[in-house]
Every structure is written in C-alpha cells, then in structure tokens.
Amino acid sequence: MFPAPIHTKGAWTVMSYRVAVIIALGLWLIPLMAIALTSVRSLEDINKGNLWGWPSKFLLIENYSAVFTTTPMATFLLNSILITVPTVIGSIALAAMAGFALAKYKFRGNVLLFAMFIAGNFIPFQILMIPVRDLTISLGMYDTIWGLIAFHVAFQSGFCTLFMRNFIKALPDALIEAARMEGVSEINIFFRIILPLVRPALAALSVLIFTFVWNDYFWALVLAQTDAARPVTAGLQSLKGMWVSSWQLISAGSIVAALLPVSIFFLMQRHFIAGLTLGATKE
C-alpha cells in the first residue's frame, strides 16, 4: 500500500494525521458550510454584513418555506425529477441493448459504431445546439420537458453504450454459447442471461446519469424558456436574477437544488464511484 499505512507509526503520528485531515477537510468545505449557514440567516444579518459570523437568529424554516412559497421552486424540482427519471431509464435501456450487440456479435462496422458512441461523448454541446433546438421546435417539444428528455436520452445513450459494452464484453462468451446450444433465442439470451448479470452496471449508470442530467445547465437554458419546463438548475439561475442580494434565499435555493443528487450519492456511493472510475484501473 502506498503511502505507508499511518497506523503502523504510533499513536502520536496517527493523531496528528487525523488533525491534519480535519483541517484540510474544513478548508475544502468552507464554501459549502458558508452557504449552509447563510441559508438560515436573516436579511438583517446580511445587510449588516454579518455573513461569515454566527447568525443572530436561525431562520431555517422561514427561509426554506420562503423559497417554496414565493418562487416556483417546487415546479422546478418536479420538472427536474420528471426529466431526470425517464432519461435514466430510457438511456440505460437503449444502451444495454446496444452495448450487448456491440460486445457479443461480430459484424462489419462494429468497431466504427463503438468509436462513434465514444466520440459523441466528448463533443462540445455548442456544435449540437442550433440543430437540436430547431429539431425540438419542429417536433413540438421545444420548451417542454419532453424536448429535454428526448435529447438527454439520445445523448446519454452514447456514454451508457460505451459503459455497457465494456461491461458485457468482460462476461464469458461460453455462457452465451451454452445458452445457444440449449436453443435459447438471441432475444432471450439478452433478457434472461445478460440482463441479470449486468445489474451492478445498471446501478452504477443510473446514479451517474441521474447526477449528470440533474446538474445539466446548458440544455436547460437552450431547450426550456418558461418556468413550466425549467429544471432546477436553470430555475435557480433565473431566481438569482430576481432575488439580487437576498443571499439567504439564493443559498437556501442552492441547497434545495443540490439535495437530491447529494443524498443519492451518499446512499449509492459505491456504485457511483465504480461507474466514474471505470477504466481508471485497467490498462
């Protein structure tokens, strides 16, 4: 193990290491702690410039309910959920099938298609912006959650296909050969044999795609125009313009926007990291 395990070096070293870790963590998370503290402050505190000291009173319930009662934050949150959940299901469903086809069948153009799905992940969004916007307009999906769902499903299916293909590729071919000998149809090989085996990959992808799509800002700006379709990222930005220097509300709104992906991350940490670090270990 590298660096050498610290607990072999005596209690004093362990103690100073722990203190160093806590100090580093404190510094690293200052911005988050500050925003959490501000979200429970009063406006007087902010106007008096008491932004970093102890709040004169705690307005936890007042500030957070103000976010929901005086702004469309509830609508934004609901939109985010309505956009993100179908996207996760849709893109992973498409990618599981495509990944299986690319991993376990030999045909002309296989590598080329795989390369296309990989490359698609890394392109700048701006090269898609104008045509995708026009496309959603002509499909009648502009400024609705459907436009965002359709685009995100299509775009995320690139990353998901890359992920699924590599995961399925690592499954033994003998499994499929044996099933074929038994007369299991190709369709059933996918549903009965492959799908149950790729559950860890599906879990990792769900958490990742959920976070990516929830946090998307660019497409929320480009494909939604009114509060009825805006997800929470674009909504927060529009509220920031409205609230100007009511930092206690902006902070509370930010925390509301971050809450769901953060809780999902802490609940599904293992899957999230497994997904993110795919490829970081194998040469």
Partner: peptide, 13 residues
C-alpha cells in the same frame, strides 16, 4: 438491439 440507440444518437448527435 442496436437500432433504437443508433436512431436516437444519429437524430440528436
């Protein structure tokens, strides 16, 4: 298996 993902990807990317 490939067609749905491919169609979506071609149309939107």
């Amino acid at each position: 298996f490939l067609t749905p993902a491919l169609l979506a990807f071609c149309l939107f990317v």
